[in-house]
């Protein structure tokens, strides 16, 4: 391994510049986990099938095991560690997974959270997401524990939470106002 050419790559992860020195063959997933010690990104199959390693590249979900770290320069990477607000308030999808028991062992969860977080951006707060649409969103991620039902529910719940946070929780708000 010595003698292998090394590349200095300036990664931008969760809003912070993090330079790493890696060989070209370093997978983005490994750069995140081993070089940056961001072990929230999980690696299941390492050939693109399970979705556990999904991160956002400029806001778009990609498999971090199917990219090299050298390719991520000049892009913004968001991992599961970057979903919550700086003050620790959970992302709506994280809160929804807790509410709906959307995880058991948690191995697959980072990939689901990043995938769903990006998909939610396609829906304005207030719009509803059908169970079929939720299944389409989740189709590329595998979970060996939950049987998926609660993850499907969590997608709808996450959208409810976004709607509430946007102050659009129609019925509740008017109910309170009128009392």
């Amino acid at each position: 391994m010595s003698g292998e050419e090394q590349f200095v790559v300036s990664l931008s992860v969760n809003g912070t510049r993090r330079p790493v020195t890696v060989p070209a063959r370093r997978l983005l997933s490994d750069a995140l986990r081993h070089d940056l010690e961001l072990t929230g990104t999980h690696v299941g199959c390492e050939h693109g099938v399970c979705g556990a390693c999904t991160v956002l590249l400029d806001g778009v979900p990609v498999r971090s095991c199917l990219m090299f770290a050298v390719q991520a320069e000049h892009h913004e990477v968001t991992t599961v560690e970057g979903l919550a607000d700086a003050d620790g308030r959970l992302h709506p999808v994280q809160e929804a997974f807790r509410d709906c028991h959307g995880l058991q062992c948690g191995f697959c969860t980072p990939g689901f959270l990043t995938t769903i977080a990006a998909a939610l951006e396609d829906y304005p707060p207030g719009a509803s997401i059908s169970a079929d649409e939720a299944r389409e969103i989740l189709g590329g991620n595998l979970c060996r524990c939950t049987g998926y039902q609660n993850i499907v529910k969590a997608v709808g719940r996450a959208q409810e939470i976004r709607t509430q946070r946007a102050g659009l929780s129609g019925d509740e708000a008017t109910d309170r106002d009128s009392t």
Binding site: V60, P61, V62
Partner: peptide, 9 residues
């Protein structure tokens, strides 16, 4: 073709 995440790349 594949799933949305693979189609993104």
């Amino acid at each position: 073709v594949a799933h949305a995440t693979v189609r993104n790349r």
